[in-house]
C-alpha cells in the first residue's frame, strides 16, 4: 500500500469514516472512472464495506443498462465477483480495472 493511500485512509479514519477504494469499470458502453463519462451522476469511489452488487447497480445506472432480463456481472480478469461480498474482501488496489459483463439469453 502506498504512503499516499495509507495517509488517505488514515485521514478517513480520523474523520470517523471507512477507508475508500477507487475503481474503474469498463462496460460495453464505455469506461466509468473518476473522470469518465463526463456527465456521470456518480463516481466509482466506495467505502470498502460496499457490496459488489452496489457497484453493478451504479454502473448500470450510469450507462442506462435498463434491460432487466440480462445478467450483469463484474469481472476481475476471468474471475466473476460475488455480488454479496464487500469490496474489502477483494483487497483492490486503487484504480483497479473491473469489467461489467452483460449476458443475454440462450436459444
Amino acid at each position: 500500500m502506498s504512503e499516499e493511500r495509507t495517509q488517505g485512509q488514515d485521514k478517513d479514519k480520523d474523520k470517523g469514516k471507512q477507508p475508500r477504494v477507487t475503481l474503474q469499470v469498463q462496460t460495453p458502453r464505455g469506461l466509468w472512472s473518476t473522470t469518465a463519462p463526463a456527465d456521470a451522476a456518480k463516481r466509482p469511489v466506495y467505502e470498502i464495506s460496499t457490496k459488489v452488487a452496489q457497484v453493478v447497480a451504479d454502473a448500470r445506472a450510469v450507462f442506462k443498462f435498463t434491460e432487466s432480463d440480462n445478467k450483469y456481472v463484474l469481472l476481475q480478469g476471468s474471475a466473476a465477483l460475488d455480488p454479496e461480498r464487500p469490496l474489502a474482501s477483494y483487497h483492490f488496489a486503487g484504480d483497479t480495472l473491473l469489467v461489467l459483463s452483460v449476458q443475454g439469453g440462450n436459444a
Binding site: 460495453p28 458502453r29 434491460e67 432487466s68 432480463d69 440480462n70 445478467k71 452483460v102 449476458q103 443475454g104 439469453g105 440462450n106 436459444a107
Partner: peptide, 10 residues
C-alpha cells in the same frame, strides 16, 4: 431479446 435474456444491441 433472445429467450432467457434481454436485448443485445451492439
Amino acid at each position: 431479446a433472445t429467450p432467457g435474456g434481454g436485448p443485445i444491441e451492439t
